[in-house]
Each structure stands twice: as structure tokens, then as C-alpha cells.
Amino acid sequence: MYDRILVPTDGSPEVEDALEYAFELAQTHDATLRTLYVVNAAGYSGLPMETALEGITDALHGKGRSAVDRVEELAPDDVAVEREIREGSPSHVIVDEADPDECDLVVMGTHGRGGINRLLLGSVTERVIRRASVPVLTVQVDPEGADDRSGEPRLAAE
């Protein structure tokens, strides 16, 4: 059913909850897992010095390398991992990568914010769900890596 599963990462420990689901699906379907880190340097473009922007971009690319390295490190031996670091708006890049010719499923973590928090903060996951042309599986995560006393992440109903 799935040949290529896209898992965007921001390098946070919370993403590891979503990775567990992606790893299990990849193993079950003998699928390749594609991990993606998006460098979003747009917020720094107004800095007065070009060299400062280059330094920030280099640092963000370094964080991206660390994030995709972590996915490879956590992946079971029988799961093939492809890695990519791209620049741009996270939701736009993820949707571009979620092309049906490139992947069959996107697995993303979500904090499950609602109400005013979602309005104020926005949600990359929500924008991907609305725009992606392939199914998006969301895994609700929190800073502790679990959302209840069992210590197990749960699938979000988005």
C-alpha cells in the first residue's frame, strides 16, 4: 500500500513520536522513509548585514543535518531512509514533496492546539492536511513525548 513515506522533522524530540508510527508503517509495507527538514530563513531576511544572514542560514542548515541524522540514527536497520534538506516555507515545501509521484503518505507530529492558540500560532500540519494530495497521518505529541499516563503517543483525530 505504501512505497514511500514522507516524514518532515524539525529536530525536536516530539517528532520521535511520529517517527515511531512511520517506522512501523515502513516496516509493515517494506517502504522507504523520506525525512525532510525545511530551512525557513525568511524571518531573518530583514537583517542589516548579508554576512549575518549567511551565518544564520548556515546554522539552520546545520540544525537540519542534525535533525535528519537523528532520524537515520533512530531508524530500524530494515528501514531505508532518504534524507533531504530544503529551504522555503515549511508547509509549502512539505506539500511540494508530498506529490503522489514522490510519496504515498505523509506522517507528521502535531501538538493538537485548538482555538485561539491555533489562530495565533498557525499550524504547519493543518496547512499540509488541507493542501496535500496524498493522505496525511497526524500523531499528537507533547513536550513530554506522551499525552497520557501510559507514555504512549496517540493518533490525532484531525
Rank of each mutant, 00 (worst) to 15 (best):
Y2P: 00
D3P: 01
D3E: 14
R4W: 06
L6V: 10
L6T: 04
P8N: 02
P8D: 05
D10A: 06
G11R: 06
S12M: 06
P13E: 12
E14W: 03
E16V: 11
E16T: 15
E16A: 12
D17E: 04
A18P: 01
L19T: 04
E20P: 04
E20K: 11
Y21T: 08
A22E: 01
F23N: 02
H29C: 07
H29V: 08
H29L: 07
D30A: 10
D30M: 12
T32F: 04
T32K: 10
T32L: 03
L33C: 02
R34C: 13
R34G: 03
L36E: 00
L36N: 04
V38Y: 10
N40V: 05
A41E: 14
A42V: 15
A42D: 14
G43R: 06
S45E: 09
S45W: 05
L47Y: 15
P48F: 11
M49S: 08
M49H: 13
E50I: 12
E50Q: 09
E50P: 05
T51N: 09
T51D: 14
T51E: 15
A52N: 07
D58T: 08
D58N: 09
A59K: 07
A59E: 14
L60M: 15
H61N: 08
K63P: 06
K63W: 11
G64Y: 15
R65I: 02
R65D: 14
S66I: 05
A67T: 02
V68F: 10
V68G: 03
D69L: 01
D69Q: 01
R70M: 12
E72K: 14
L74P: 07
P76V: 10
P76H: 15
P76I: 10
D77A: 14
D77W: 11
D78E: 11
D78Q: 14
V79W: 01
A80L: 06
R83A: 02
E84H: 14
E87A: 04
G88S: 10
S89I: 09
P90I: 02
S91N: 09
S91G: 02
S91V: 04
H92K: 13
V93C: 02
I94T: 00
I94V: 11
I94G: 00
V95Q: 02
D96C: 02
E97H: 14
A98L: 08
P100K: 09
P100I: 06
P100A: 11
D101S: 13
E102P: 01
C103M: 03
L105P: 05
V106I: 06
V106K: 03
V106T: 11
M108F: 03
G109K: 00
T110D: 06
H111R: 04
H111E: 06
R113G: 00
G115E: 07
I116R: 00
R118M: 05
R118N: 05
L120S: 01
L120R: 08
L121W: 05
L121I: 13
G122C: 05
G122H: 13
T125A: 15
T125E: 01
T125K: 00
R127S: 13
V128W: 05
I129E: 01
R131Q: 08
R131K: 07
R131F: 01
V134I: 15
P135C: 12
P135D: 12
P135V: 14
L137F: 14
Q140E: 11
P143G: 10
E144A: 15
E144G: 08
D147K: 13
D147L: 12
D148G: 11
D148R: 06
R149H: 09
S150F: 07
P153K: 09
L155N: 03
A157P: 07
A157R: 15
E158L: 14
E158G: 14
